[in-house]
């Protein structure tokens, strides 16, 4: 599949050596690669393959546009094909990166003037960390839905009053229950822009809640992982 997507790509340009693997939980880790050799918009995704393998998957870029490393946030999925293989990578392993892709990305003009609410389930927080790294002064709030409080990936990087953790399976969150339960209780300014990322069921429910609160669909942008 990789070779089908970019048959004419110079192989060496898309190959990256894994520099570091940061283990964030038992299942979730970040892959730190050398600085991206392409320009991207915070929020976009890439397609990742393992050199020598024949499959690829999409991953949102976890690092900022100008960060020294290209970083990805990955959760190993039970019975998944690709993530158990990614899990076995070590510093020095070679991966293949194509992209960037996608319209889910922050426009610089908007970042300067807009008011944002980022709504993420699980690793769906990845594009929002990229945005916050790229635009440290952006006016944002993150609502992050996970099962356990240990899944609050790199929480310390976000100002405390901007990050709300919702945990559905333990009591360690700022809100104990599903993200959508919390969302129902929130009030947002009418001009807020909403960015939603993660699984399609969460996105569907969150969309319904936001539309119910009177927000226009054009104010809401979605990135569906599965």
């Amino acid at each position: 599949m990789m070779s089908l997507m970019k048959p004419d790509m110079q192989m060496d340009v898309s190959f990256y050596k894994v520099e570091e693997i940061r283990h964030l939980t038992d299942e979730t880790f970040s892959l730190k690669l050398p600085k991206a050799r392409f320009a991207f918009k915070a929020g976009q995704h890439i397609s990742l393959g393992i050199v020598g393998g024949n499959q690829s998957r999409e991953y949102s870029i976890y690092s900022g546009e100008n960060d020294e490393n290209l970083e990805l946030l990955i959760k190993e999925v039970d019975n998944g094909y690709f993530t158990p293989r990614l899990r076995k990578l070590k510093a020095g392993s070679m991966v293949e990166v194509h992209g960037p892709f996608g319209k889910f990305g922050m426009e610089p003009e908007l970042a300067a003037s807009g008011k944002f609410v980022f709504i993420a389930s699980g690793t769906g927080i990845a594009p929002f960390r990229s945005i916050v790294h790229t635009y440290p002064d952006i006016d944002y709030r993150i609502i992050h839905g996970v099962r356990y409080s240990k899944e609050a990936y790199d929480r310390e990087e976000y100002a405390g009053d901007r990050y709300t953790l919702c945990t559905s399976r333990d009591k360690g969150g700022d809100y104990n229950g599903r993200l959508t339960g919390y969302l129902k209780t929130c009030k947002f300014a009418p001009e807020t822009q909403f960015d939603l990322c993660g699984n399609s069921n969460m996105i569907f429910d969150a969309l319904e809640i936001l539309k119910g609160k009177g927000f226009d669909r054009d104010q809401i942008h979605c990135e569906v992982y599965f």
Partner: peptide
């Protein structure tokens, strides 16, 4: 169906 459209990763919903 908006739900199906999301699973298809389409960029709009029925209202749009």
């Amino acid at each position: 169906s908006d739900k199906t459209l999301l699973r298809m990763r389409r960029m709009y919903d029925v209202a749009q």
